[in-house]
Nucleic acid binder design. Structure first.
Lengths: 107, 107
DNA sequence: TCCATACTTCAATTATTGTTGAAGTGTTGG
DNA sequence: CCAACACTTCAACAATAATTGAAGTATGGA
């Protein structure tokens, strides 16, 4: 992931609606959610929501698919993981991720 | 860290100059750097740099101190750690931080 | 005290982002 | 094929962020 991608991803998450959308999709898991459900859950107007979903897609954080007359958005976990990896490596003084509460399940 | 703080921090890092500044300060360690050195290293005009340093301070990611006629900026590692913790917990499906290469040094 | 140094703040301008309602695209059931 | 549905795109506007040069503040040395 290039620096430019990192900046796009961070910028995409740096907005209240988009952060909530992304969180909702992370919680929703691999099945994802439709804009309809998202708009309902978060009380965001369709046009506004569509704009922000597009932003998140452009940043590479979301995947889009069609299912009938609905679109389905899903969080791109790999991408989010890559973002975390970059931040851990470059912005945390090389320390292991400060947030490892379920530490070392394989030990 | 409240959602609003998370958004501020993400927004602060979502800019090429600011991301480089923060990275430089992380690398510099606890001793930090002066705006003079930063501007020199990153080739940024003093006014512009000052603006971005202020943004990073306002976002809580940087600490400022005076030493003689120089100001010294340092990365706030704790704050960055809190940001990482939030993202791991809320945006990574509860999986442990995707980036744990030096894993489990205490095992 | 006065000057030079090291930055910051201010003010004006430009560029980018965010929001909204209206119009458009693709899809399904009748 | 057509009407209703689920969304997106467009266009216009409002709000916010970024850049620049000029002026201001704080510090240390002559």
């Amino acid at each position: 992931m290039e620096e430019q991608d990192i900046i796009r991803a961070l910028g995409a998450l740096a907005h209240d609606i988009r952060l909530r959308v992304f969180r909702a999709l992370v919680v929703a898991g691999p099945e994802g959610l439709t804009p309809g459900r998202l708009g309902e859950a978060l009380a965001v107007a369709p046009t506004t929501l569509s704009f922000h979903l597009k932003e998140l897609c452009n940043a590479g954080l979301l995947l889009q698919a069609r299912s009938g007359r609905n679109l389905i958005y899903r969080a791109d976990y790999a991408r989010m993981g890559a973002l975390m990896a970059y931040l851990t490596e470059n912005c945390c003084a090389g320390e292991p991720c400060a947030a490892t509460p379920p530490a070392c399940t394989n030990c």
